[in-house]
């Protein structure tokens, strides 16, 4: 008795070919299996972002932003932690001076033309490339602002100083994003942001005799906001004109 006979009990009518496994489209079955095995299941953060933004594409773009990945966030926390220690040790509000530069670097690495390797492809997608850029920049800015505020609170700095650096941070981040977009290089954006902030801080030292003038002088708020607006326009313009290869 063969194995097949054992399965059918020797009855030939049961061995007749019918609508059984022979009719199964194996490639279709495999695709179903592959889809389940290969799929990337979104984590809670991505699901929350998808729900808030009402776009799974934007949510995926957000959670894959380099400056929102865990390594970058840990680096930011370490830098601000050093700022806390320096502030507590010297009495100078170093957190307020360091936070804008850290955030500017994060914004420059938030992806954009020249930074995103697949930018050309992103420009042909239904989810607008500018919407991706804007969402990423806002998320990076928001996260860094929250970390900076927490660091300021840890040093016991007065509320006016704590909020004093948020406006300059906006301006420095806008500068970093504009430079990165125009130069099509994240590193240029980082350099411009840090250099711009260093010049501002040192100018405050020269003009007012205080290193912290850049974050404590309320007369600077309007110029900071105007500068941020100009940088925003530059970013918009630079991402509007697509340079190409003829």
């Amino acid at each position: 008795m063969t194995g097949g006979d054992e399965m059918t009990g020797g009855r030939e009518d049961l061995a007749e070919p019918g609508p059984g496994p022979r009719d199964v489209d194996l490639s279709r079955v495999w695709l179903g299996v592959a889809a389940e095995v290969w799929r990337r299941r979104p984590g809670p953060l991505e699901r929350l972002a998808g729900w808030l933004l009402r776009s799974p594409g934007l949510a995926r773009a957000l959670v894959t932003t380099p400056s929102l990945l865990l390594g970058w966030i840990i680096a930011t926390v370490i830098v601000l932690g050093a700022g806390i220690l320096a502030t507590l040790g010297t009495g100078t509000p170093f957190v307020a001076l360091v936070a804008p530069a850290v955030a500017a670097a994060g914004i420059a690495y938030a992806y954009g033309p020249g930074i995103d390797p697949a930018w050309e492809l992103s420009c042909s997608m239904a989810v607008s490339d500018r919407m991706v850029l804007l969402t990423r920049a806002l998320a990076v800015f928001g996260l860094n602002a929250a970390l900076g505020l927490a660091a300021s609170a840890a040093t016991g700095t007065a509320a006016s100083v704590t909020f004093g650096w948020l406006v300059p941070m906006t301006a420095v981040c806008a500068l970093a994003l504009a430079a990165a977009t125009v130069a099509r290089s994240a590193n240029v954006g980082v350099a411009a942001g840090i250099a711009g902030w260093a010049i501002t801080v040192l100018s405050g030292q020269v003009a007012a005799g205080r290193l912290t003038a850049a974050v404590t002088d309320s007369a600077l708020i309007l110029p900071y906001l105007a500068f941020a607006a100009i940088c925003g326009v530059i970013t918009w313009y630079a991402s509007r004109i697509r340079r190409g290869t003829p």
Binding site: A35, W38, R39, S55, G57, R60, M125
Partner: peptide, 20 residues
């Protein structure tokens, strides 16, 4: 999958489309 989502394919259809 990333570009399927940016093309605004319905999320439920994406895994099967990507596998195919």
């Amino acid at each position: 999958e990333y570009f399927a989502l940016l093309k605004e394919m319905p999320a439920a259809r994406v895994p099967a489309a990507v596998a195919a």
